[in-house]
């Protein structure tokens, strides 16, 4: 009785090859993360309500514009506090290139915002002004997306 030949079933999918010496092929790689904002979650909830939530140290009183649940200065727990919705540009840059994820949004202008009486800064984008006209010390106010995406870009700034 002839032995039945065992063969691996094959598909017609091919490989994208860029070069033969050395052989260089395309290898696709992607993934979804199950990203938890964990203790930072109230900040993102705040954005959906039109609020900027910072942190205040319960021991030394240090105030953070970008929240953290324990104080970097003394290690004590912080409590949530509402930030003012107006501040000033501490620094800025207009990006004409970027990471792949943001490339189609270029040029965009990043700013670090300083708030009166708050010790640290907040990273955001500014719109509604020509890129070349943004300057240090410029007053800005926060605007919020109507349809929250629960991302830090739910808030952005415009000239005040």
């Amino acid at each position: 009785m002839a032995e039945e030949k065992v063969k691996l079933p094959e598909t017609e999918e091919g490989t994208t090859v860029y070069n033969l010496d050395p052989i260089i092929i395309k290898y696709h790689y992607e993934m979804n993360y199950i990203h938890s904002y964990a203790q930072d979650s109230p900040f993102f909830a705040g954005l959906s309500k039109g609020k900027l939530m910072g942190s205040k140290c319960t021991a030394c009183g240090y105030k953070y514009a970008t929240p953290r649940s324990h104080c970097m200065e003394c290690g004590a727990k912080t409590e949530w506090m509402e930030l003012p919705l107006e501040g000033k540009v501490h620094t800025f840059t207009t990006c004409y290139f970027g990471s792949e994820e943001f490339l189609d949004q270029t040029p965009f202008t990043l700013i670090l915002v300083e708030f009166e009486g708050v010790n640290t800064l907040f990273l955001s984008r500014v719109i509604g002004i020509e890129h070349g006209k943004v300057h240090i010390g410029m007053p800005v106010k926060a605007e919020f997306l109507r349809l929250s995406k629960f991302k830090p870009t739910d808030v952005y700034f415009v000239p005040a």
Binding site: T66, T93, C95, F97, F102, Q105, L123, S124, R125, P152
Partner: peptide, 14 residues
Amino acid sequence: DTNFDYPVGGFYSG
């Protein structure tokens, strides 16, 4: 920081 910085337009040259 992938919570607060990267999603705003993460780009080291920026």
